[in-house]
């Protein structure tokens, strides 16, 4: 315990509250993620999982609390963070090619005005190879299947050469082959010391794929190693939590107990 505490966490979320107008989506969340883990963020729909990721990336402004990446604010760490948004968040009819989309991962390192060149495209090709999509570089992105789109997004994150990855449902709507390929890739990333944080929906696969987990339902239910915190009790609090909460309100006898 003490030895672990001394390591600077890859991600430290302190008292994070995010509200859309006056409706809290995340309520005083504290999470600390050590480097080199593969973490799932699970919770029911509307639990604030995507909002948690977006707040970590500085894409939504918190009402309270702060986020530290390797001990520093996110603005100072942009080069070290990669982001895989939900696949459905972009227009796949956009007139651009696979190689172009992957190269976009280098835009942050290039900064304003500088154009990507041969070096960036070569790196993009390497990352396409890592996700098994070499040979698709010149394909227009509307011609890709769902699984291929997800692989392209993953390659775009790899190309950022980050050490902390945020992924919003990377397994959404992909076939079994692609899911296995993505898991293998994520585990490779962890093996090389990188930290990966995924919004994940399939509870069955959490213990198999991940070694760390955060259970979120507006508030943080639990966060830690899968074998310690991924318990039926915590899951009931996360997913069933709403029903008892409602019935407590509706039924004073229940509250009295």
């Amino acid at each position: 315990m003490t030895a672990e505490n001394r390591v600077i966490p890859a991600l430290q979320v302190e008292d994070l509250t995010v509200a859309y107008r006056d409706k809290p989506v995340l309520w005083d969340v504290d999470v600390s993620v050590p480097p080199g883990v593969l973490m799932a963020v699970v919770g029911p729909n509307g639990a604030g999982k995507t909002t948690l990721i977006k707040a970590c990336l500085g894409l939504v402004r918190p009402a309270a609390g702060r986020v530290l990446i390797h001990g520093r604010p996110v603005e100072a760490q942009r080069r070290n963070i990669a982001y895989v948004p939900q696949r459905g968040s972009v227009d796949w009819d956009f007139p651009t090619t696979v190689l172009d989309v992957v190269t976009m991962g280098r835009y942050g390192a290039l900064g304003w005005f500088r154009r990507p060149g041969a070096a960036e495209r070569e790196r993009a090709r390497q990352c396409l190879e890592m996700v098994g999509m070499l040979g698709y570089e010149r394909r227009q992105i509307s011609q890709l299947s769902g699984g291929q789109q997800q692989r392209v997004f993953l390659a775009r994150a790899l190309v950022q050469d980050a050490d902390l990855f945020f992924m919003d449902e990377p397994f959404q709507g992909v076939d079994a082959t692609t899911e296995r390929a993505i898991v293998a890739l994520l585990q490779d990333l962890r093996a090389s010391g990188r930290t990966v944080i995924c919004v994940h929906h399939d509870l069955q696969t959490v213990p198999e794929y991940f070694d760390w987990v955060s259970l979120v339902n507006v508030r943080l239910v639990a966060s830690g190693p899968v074998n310690e915190v991924f318990t039926p009790n915590h899951l009931r609090t996360t997913y069933g939590g709403r029903l008892p909460f409602l019935s407590q309100r509706a039924d004073p006898k229940e509250r009295a107990r």
């Binding site: 990336l57 948004p85 972009v90 956009f94 172009d100 976009m104 835009y107 942050g108 304003w112």
Partner: peptide
């Protein structure tokens, strides 16, 4: 601003995460 226009049109969330 060719590359900036392209990425903010295609994926504004990524652009913001990259600091553009």
């Amino acid at each position: 601003l060719y590359k900036e226009l392209k990425i903010t049109s295609f994926d504004p969330a990524l652009a913001a995460a990259l600091g553009l």
